[in-house]
């Protein structure tokens, strides 16, 4: 365990080379990022989520998310056999510190659902913004220009998924950026980076080699509230019909 060796090595590998530019604050010089060559989304695998809350904590650490507001959160569903459409849902503090242990139920099923901005291709939130302060980028990420946002909260009302909030001190709309500052540097999002079970995977639909394409062929993948016709790009594997 030689510290000096590591200090030396950090400059050598290719990944670290890009990293230098990133840390120097000049991502435009890092391996070329082209807006038009990506179309980002996320795969959330309900069959793998253990409700540990790592994603929520990581998101907060990465993005300075204010307490009691959430760019991502985890819900725990209990769907009972006699009511398949009205589940019991909890999300204590957004699932940030995990969930209380659950006892086995005879006639019901538990599961966890991680939630986040769906980065909708036809988003109602960008539609209603009166000034163009929220928009979808050419690479498919719904962002907020917080230097331009009025803080009218119309987008918050328009989001069917409850992903937006008004930042309590900045007084502008805020939500998941799909870690835009990371994915444009060749990194994955903070939540994906920190998910211990691989229940969250950043996907790039424009990348023909992205594993999402093979995954979608063999799995039962849905989006939340498809009736809202938002073009949601948060893809859920194993999504139960009771999930809202």
């Amino acid at each position: 365990m030689n510290l000096n060796r590591r200090q030396f090595l950090v400059l050598v590998p290719v990944a670290a080379a890009a990293w230098q530019y990133v840390l120097a604050g000049t991502p435009q010089d890092a391996p070329n990022y082209q807006l038009t060559e990506h179309w980002w989304g996320m795969l959330l695998d309900i069959t793998k989520c253990i409700g540990c809350g790592n994603c929520v904590r990581a998101c907060q650490a990465e993005n300075d998310v204010p307490d009691e507001y959430f760019r991502t959160w985890v819900e725990r569903y209990l769907r009972t056999d006699w009511n398949l459409t009205t589940p019991e849902v909890i999300s204590p503090d957004g699932g940030k510190e995990g969930f209380p242990a659950a006892e086995e139920v005879k006639n019901g099923m538990y599961f966890f659902v991680p939630k986040m901005c769906n980065h909708c291709a036809d988003s109602p939130c960008t539609q209603v913004c009166p000034v163009g302060a929220t928009f979808i980028t050419p690479d498919g990420v719904v962002l907020i220009d917080q230097t331009y946002c009025l803080g009218c909260a119309y987008c918050v009302q328009a989001c069917p998924y409850g992903c937006r909030y008004i930042h309590p001190t900045k007084h502008v709309a805020d939500k998941c950026t799909l870690c835009y500052h990371r994915i444009t540097k060749g990194l994955t999002t903070a939540c994906c980076e920190n998910c211990p079970t691989g229940a969250r995977q950043l996907v790039d639909l424009k990348n023909p080699n992205d594993p999402i394409h093979a995954f979608l062929k063999t799995h039962d993948v849905h989006v939340l509230k498809p009736e809202m016709a938002t073009g949601a790009k948060a893809f859920y594997n194993g999504l139960d019909g009771s999930v809202r």
Partner: peptide, 27 residues
């Protein structure tokens, strides 16, 4: 790019990450 401030995209991409990422660790 559309009905928004184009420079906002670069501004949103600029902040420094807090998590270095797996490949940085493995290096």
């Amino acid at each position: 790019y559309g009905h928004y401030r184009g420079a906002a995209i670069a501004e949103m991409a600029a902040p420094q990450p807090h998590f270095a990422g797996q490949s940085a660790c493995e290096a």
